[in-house]
Design a binder for these strands. Structure first.
Length: 341
DNA sequence: CATCGACCTTT
DNA sequence: AAGGTCGAT
């Protein structure tokens, strides 16, 4: 356990300031090697010295959170009566550095004397120069300098991408954000996606592929899983292996990688073999090939072998094999329903 | 049409 | 090292 404050432990000992990630990025500002008194003491939590005190800072999309530690010089007086919660994020929008007139509960306006809060806000404003509108500067610099503009994207991409990156999406974060933006701006919203459910497969697939980060495989996955295109077999390297290994499918034999053509050939191959619900059948094979289900398969195979032996001994051949086949078919159907439904 | 390296995280 | 997509070639 860290002895430093963590926001996740509760906001009680934290105060906040409205400040978006596009105006301040703690990770970049404090971690860039140009400031020397800050250390990341927790995930996204930076602890250091400022104005003679020790602080821990962290941020969420639109809020800069700060915690200060008690020290002998700055014993907390209590000229700081506050209503519970007034410090918490609920506001998140406290104006910066402006002396306000607050309404007390009785409704009588009382001038608020600069209290330690105000001092702390001023200090943060000063230290990070928060009054300077970074967004505007980036816009101007980018307009004057294409190179700056392309570099700056990394740092000013909106909070959605930043958040997705934090969540571990890596380079896909940008694709997701851009796709969402594109769906909203160019396609008129989620309605567009919904509409693809009633579009023919190839049309839906082409539409999806206009989105950044959506190639043949992902488009097919969405078609199969979300757009009711049951015949679609999403082809990845894995499925390609299965096609070659278990079906001697020759598609793309000379090829080194999965080209568009090979995608189509393998999809068609399985569609022809399995019919209109080929995508569901593919799901079964795909799962059975996963490492985590290998043991399941082995034990199942052993059981089947045993069953076969017993049947062979008990009955002598005729008729019974057909029954077993029927049972097996039923089982497969059930499996598929469970998987996909 | 095909290939390669970059992207980023997870194993 | 694997995984799919993208942009360059």
């Amino acid at each position: 356990m860290s002895q430093h404050a963590l926001l996740s432990a509760g906001t009680k000992s934290w105060r906040s300031l409205a400040c978006s990630r596009s105006e301040l990025r703690l990770d970049l500002t404090l971690g860039c090697g140009q400031s020397f008194r800050w250390r990341e003491t927790g995930d996204g939590h930076w602890t250091g010295v400022m104005g003679g005190r020790v602080w821990t800072l962290t941020q969420t999309d639109d809020t800069l959170w700060y915690h200060t530690y008690n020290s002998p010089n700055t014993i907390r007086g209590d000229g700081r009566k506050r209503r519970a919660g007034s410090l918490l994020q609920g506001s998140g929008k406290r104006s910066k550095g402006v002396i306000e007139v607050k309404e007390e509960e009785e409704g009588e306006p009382v001038a608020v004397t600069p209290d330690p809060d105000r001092k702390e806000e001023e200090l943060l404003n000063d230290y990070f120069q928060l009054k300077v509108k970074l967004g505007d500067l980036y816009r101007d610099w980018g307009a004057a300098d294409p190179h700056f503009n392309s570099i700056a994207k990394i740092f000013t991409d909106n909070s959605v991408e930043a958040r997705l990156r934090d969540l571990g999406f890596g380079y896909r974060a940008r694709f997701l954000q851009q796709s969402a933006r594109q769906i909203l701006d160019s396609h008129g919203g989620p309605h567009w996606l919904q509409g693809l459910r009633s579009a023919p497969y190839l049309q839906a697939r082409d539409a999806l592929r206009t989105l950044p980060g959506v190639g043949p495989k992902v488009a097919d996955c969405v078609c199969l899983m979300s757009l009711e295109k049951a015949c679609v077999v999403p082809v990845d390297t894995h499925v390609w292996q299965i096609a070659k290994r278990d079906y001697s499918c020759a598609a793309g034999n000379g090829q080194k990688s999965l080209t568009d053509k090979v995608h189509r050939q393998i999809g068609d191959f399985f569609r022809q073999l399995w019919g209109p619900y080929a995508g569901w059948a593919h799901s079964v094979l795909f799962c059975s090939d996963l490492k985590k289900f290998q043991k399941l398969k082995e034990t199942h195979c052993l059981k089947q072998e045993e069953e076969k032996k017993k049947v062979k001994i008990k009955v002598e051949g005729e008729g019974m094999t057909k029954k077993i086949k029927k049972m097996c078919n039923r089982k497969v159907k059930m499996c598929v329903k469970e998987e996909v439904g």
